[in-house]
């Protein structure tokens, strides 16, 4: 149950792009066409699903205060958490390279569609952000960290897909010249983020601690609602495109 809760929470409520602005650079740079956006989004889901659990293991057995206990009692009070940035980024860079090699060898077709995006991803804030949030939110098990990674990846994917669709349409509307391109993209993203804030109400609001106990009761109900929302997200993107069109007109 907590898997489902975390999954939907990381897609909608803590959406990487709209709630924490992670991965904005590639989000803005690669969202001109839907097809490339899909490629990058898929690669992000893939890499997050690999790196978050790996970094969870590193955090649990190397970096946390007292994590080195398995080496022997004299290591029990070591605290290496200051090394987490360098460990995480090194893991990410290595995993990305590894994934690239493996995919190239065993799935050339996939490599052709994802390939060019993989090196880009090593320096995507969303990937490192996923690992850092995993650490700061103290996700308890490796299974949950996998769920978190996949969920955040899907959230990012939805965001870039929606903005790419909107940007393809907005080319046909008359945006003020000074806002064309970057400016309007920022403002649309802002409006979409406001839209996504309405998902916040699904988990009864309040702080994370309070949320957990309260939500178990409404989970079943919430799940159904959320599943419906997944379907409507596409429609929502369209609707947003229309709305923004009206605004700009």
């Amino acid at each position: 149950m907590e898997h489902i809760e975390l999954f939907f929470k990381s897609i909608f409520i803590d959406n990487m792009v709209f709630a924490t602005f992670l991965g904005m650079c590639s989000y803005l740079a690669v969202s001109k066409k839907v097809s490339t956006a899909v490629g990058l989004g898929a690669a992000v889901i893939f890499v997050l699903a690999v790196t978050v659990p790996v970094n969870w293991l590193l955090d649990q057995y190397l970096l946390q205060p007292g994590a080195l206990k398995w080496l022997g009692a004299e290591y029990a009070d070591y605290d290496l958490s200051f090394l987490s940035f360098i460990m995480f980024i090194a893991t990410i860079a290595t995993m990305v390279q590894l994934v690239e090699i493996i995919v190239e060898k065993f799935a050339p077709a996939l490599y052709n569609s994802l390939g060019i995006f993989l090196p880009l991803i090593a320096v995507n804030c969303a990937i490192l952000g996923g690992s850092l949030f995993m650490q700061s939110r103290e996700i308890p098990t490796v299974g949950l960290s996998l769920t978190y990674g996949v969920g955040s990846g899907i959230g990012w994917f939805l965001a870039i897909l929606a903005i790419a669709a909107i940007r393809e349409k907005i080319r046909y509307s008359s945006v003020p010249p000074a806002l064309r391109g970057l400016g309007i993209t920022f403002i649309i993203t802002g409006l979409m983020a406001i839209g996504f804030m309405s998902f916040g109400g699904m988990l009864t609001g309040g702080d994370d601690e309070g949320k957990k106990e309260e939500t178990t009761a409404v989970q079943v109900e919430k799940k159904e609602v959320e599943e419906k929302k997944v379907e409507t997200t596409e429609e929502k993107a369209e609707e947003l495109a229309n709305n923004t069109k009206e605004i700009t007109e």
Binding site: F18, A19, T20, F21, P176, P177, A178, L179, R180, G181, L182, G183, I184, F186, I187, T189, G190, L191, A193, I194, M197
Partner: peptide, 24 residues
């Protein structure tokens, strides 16, 4: 958080209105 995006959008708008060479 969404307002940060909109404020930056407005900054871009102002900047590009003042300097037409930057318009995309």
């Amino acid at each position: 958080s969404p307002m940060a995006l909109i404020v930056v959008g407005i900054i871009i708008w102002v900047q590009r209105t003042r300097n037409k060479a930057l318009v995309e």
